[in-house]
């Protein structure tokens, strides 16, 4: 797997917590599971656009974090979990970039092609799988990030609001 790229920004303090990565991944498990279940239920049309790539395994890797996300957008049994970067499972495609860019991409506030042109977004592996995933998620009206925040009520919305402001300051496409 390629090393993290384009990551001159220092790791933000809130991402430097000295929590063992394996423990962090386990703690994120139920939250991520809830997110993927909700998005799957609310947007079944996404699976139609994914076609055969419902069975593909994607690794979404924020540069700043010690963990990545493993996504398998299978309509029957969707998977979204955190995995340590030292223990990345076999996958079909890798999507890598700064956390705030990845957030903006699912918050309908950034263009993936523009991020690719600027070299802030890196993909490898099965390009067709990545293109299918991007197009499928882009057909969701509104922001997936906002829907995810709603899942956690006022706390979730407040956190997203803070992240959006921070993202605008640190990153903009």
């Amino acid at each position: 797997m390629p090393s993290s790229i384009n990551s001159p920004n220092p790791i933000p303090p809130w991402a430097r917590a000295k929590v063992p990565t394996a423990l962090l991944c386990r703690a994120l498990g139920p939250i991520l599971g809830r997110i993927v279940q909700k998005v799957s239920r609310q947007h079944p049309e996404v699976f139609d656009r994914l076609g055969p790539h419902q069975k593909s395994n994607f690794i979404i890797s924020p540069n700043e974090f010690p963990f990545a996300l493993h996504l398998r957008p299978d309509s029957a049994q969707p998977i979204l979990r955190a995995v340590a970067k030292t223990d990345i499972p076999p996958h079909n495609a890798l999507i890598e970039g700064r956390f705030f860019l990845l957030l903006q991409l699912v918050d309908e506030n950034a263009d993936g092609d523009a991020a690719f042109f600027s070299r802030d977004l890196y993909i490898s592996g099965d390009t067709e799988a990545v293109v299918s995933l991007r197009n499928a998620l882009d057909d969701v009206d509104g922001s997936i990030a906002a829907e995810t925040a709603d899942l956690f009520g006022p706390l979730g919305r407040t956190l997203l609001s803070i992240l959006r402001k921070k993202g605008v300051r640190e990153w903009a496409v």
């Binding site: 390629p2 090393s3 790229i5 384009n6 070299r119 890196y122 993909i123 490898s124 592996g125 099965d126 390009t127 067709e128 990545v130 293109v131 299918s132």
Partner: peptide
């Protein structure tokens, strides 16, 4: 076609783009 496009990133940040198994460009970091 995306099914025939691949990108390869080197450790020094250089990236190649390939189509149908042929390298068609190579970008500095």
């Amino acid at each position: 076609p995306a099914s025939q496009v691949t990108y390869q990133q080197e450790k020094d940040g250089r990236m190649s783009s390939c189509l149908g198994g042929f390298t068609i460009d190579w970008f500095e970091p």
